[in-house]
Amino acid sequence: MPDDLLERLDATATRLRRSKGWIINDALREYLEREHLRQRRDEETREALAELDAGQVVDGDEVLAWIDSWGSKNKRESPR
Rank of each mutant, 00 (worst) to 15 (best):
S78Y: 15
G21Q: 11
R41Q: 15
D68S: 09
L28D: 00
L37I: 13
R15Y: 06
W66N: 03
E62N: 06
D61W: 07
D42S: 05
Q56S: 06
L64A: 05
E51D: 14
G21C: 06
L52T: 14
N74E: 15
P79D: 03
A11E: 05
W22Y: 14
G55I: 04
R29Y: 04
A11V: 07
L16Y: 01
G21A: 09
L52I: 13
R18M: 15
E51T: 09
A50D: 06
R18P: 12
R17Y: 03
L52V: 11
E30P: 10
D26F: 04
K20W: 01
R34A: 05
I24Q: 13
G60D: 01
H36G: 04
E51L: 13
E35K: 15
L32R: 10
R17N: 13
V63P: 02
T14N: 04
W66K: 09
A54Y: 02
D61K: 14
E62C: 09
G71F: 02
R41S: 09
M1Q: 06
D4H: 13
M1K: 01
A50F: 06
K20G: 00
T12D: 00
D10S: 04
W70C: 11
G60N: 05
S19I: 03
A11L: 10
R15S: 06
A65Y: 04
A48T: 12
N74D: 14
E7H: 10
D3P: 13
E44G: 02
I67G: 10
T45H: 01
E51H: 10
D4N: 08
L9W: 04
D10N: 08
L6D: 00
R76W: 03
S69F: 02
V58L: 03
K20D: 00
E43F: 03
R18H: 08
I67S: 13
W66Q: 04
E33H: 06
R40G: 00
R46V: 11
W66P: 06
N25E: 12
V57D: 01
R41A: 11
K75W: 02
K73A: 10
A50E: 09
R46I: 14
T12I: 14
E7L: 10
A11G: 07
R8H: 10
R80A: 12
Q56F: 05
A65M: 06
D26N: 07
A13I: 11
K75R: 12
I67D: 08
R8L: 12
E44A: 06
T14K: 04
R38W: 00
S78G: 02
E77S: 09
R46K: 11
D3Y: 09
D53L: 10
E47A: 05
S19D: 03
Y31N: 03
A50S: 08
R46E: 06
L16I: 10
E51V: 08
L52F: 14
R38A: 07
D42A: 00
A65T: 00
Q39S: 05
R15I: 12
R40W: 01
R17D: 07
R29N: 12
G60V: 15
K75G: 08
A54E: 09
W22M: 03
E35F: 11
E77R: 15
Y31C: 01
